[in-house]
Computed example of a mutant assay.
Amino acid sequence: MNTGKKTRLNRILRQYGLGNGTAFFLPYDQGLEHGPRDFAPNPAASDPRYVVKLAVEGGFNGIVVQIGLAEKFYWDYAGEIPLVLKLNGKTDIPPDARALSPVNASVEDAVRLGADAVGYTLYVGTPAQEADFEQYRRVRDDAHRLGMPLIVWAYPRGEAIEAKGGKDSFYAVDYAARTASELGADVVKVNFPHPEKRTDVPAAYAEEFTSQQAIDAVVRSANRTLVLVSGGTKAGDEAMLEKARESMEAGATGLIFGRNVWQREHDESLRFVAALREILAKYPSA
């Protein structure tokens, strides 16, 4: 890791959030990825200004947005919270069978906008993997050249994945974490693994594992790549808090919760964020 990356990561982890080396990010790219109806549970969240302000109020380490929202709405809070510029994304309209998330912004754009990191979605296991790896390589090279930390959304996708336990099986998530590490990610974002999903998975994953054993293994597979665990789709609060506890117990660097936060009414969002911050506070990094 060069000094530019180290400086920016230190700023994210030590000067924002809890300042204890843990990370808590608020992603807000779901309008592109899932469509405007994602904001229906809390219509206020359709306004990017509301969500950026919520990230500041909640004491997050950073907010993740696509370039259009970064250029139009991050301005009001520039310097108050780190920006993670998402460099690629796709709509929810085409099927996942040949999933590829096309690049729509550059690392140079991130530097211009004052970002502290960039994000890239890597679909592991699709037939479009060759093209995905090639455009990822160009992003990785630019990020290294410009000293910008690279956060990889390591998402298993495609028919082959669905035939072997599904995209959030222990097998798929573990494989994706290792793939991101070997391809040079500085930080990897993964979904919480479901070890109970064992249909036609390789023999090593066909045994019974607890959720703690599964997330432990995923963090180990990432090696020295920092791990962020996603909140995933909205579920009961206690279940999500337990996933957060197990993730941090496994050695994850932090959490990245989007819809689980901003789909709630404002005050309820902040109460839920406070509960997650209590968990993060118990796992400071050396």
Rank of each mutant, 00 (worst) to 15 (best):
V51E: 06
R277P: 07
A286E: 06
G119A: 14
Y205P: 00
D200L: 04
R245S: 00
Q66G: 14
E162Q: 15
R137A: 15
L228S: 06
F170R: 02
R198C: 00
G184F: 12
K243V: 03
W262N: 07
G258P: 10
V218Q: 10
E71F: 01
T22V: 05
V56L: 04
H194N: 02
T199N: 02
T7W: 12
F25G: 00
K164P: 02
E265N: 13
L280P: 01
T179Y: 10
S46M: 08
A214M: 09
V65W: 03
Q135Y: 05
R157E: 03
D174K: 00
G184A: 14
D47M: 09
G166R: 12
D109Q: 12
P36V: 12
K282Y: 01
V52W: 15
L54C: 10
E33C: 05
Y136T: 08
V187G: 13
R220T: 07
E249P: 06
G258D: 10
G114P: 12
G231N: 07
E182L: 13
D216F: 01
L18F: 02
Q129W: 07
R145K: 15
R11H: 15
P193T: 08
Y77C: 01
L54Q: 13
K243A: 00
A180I: 13
R198W: 02
T126H: 08
L100M: 08
A274C: 05
D109A: 15
L113R: 03
E162S: 14
Q135F: 02
Y283E: 07
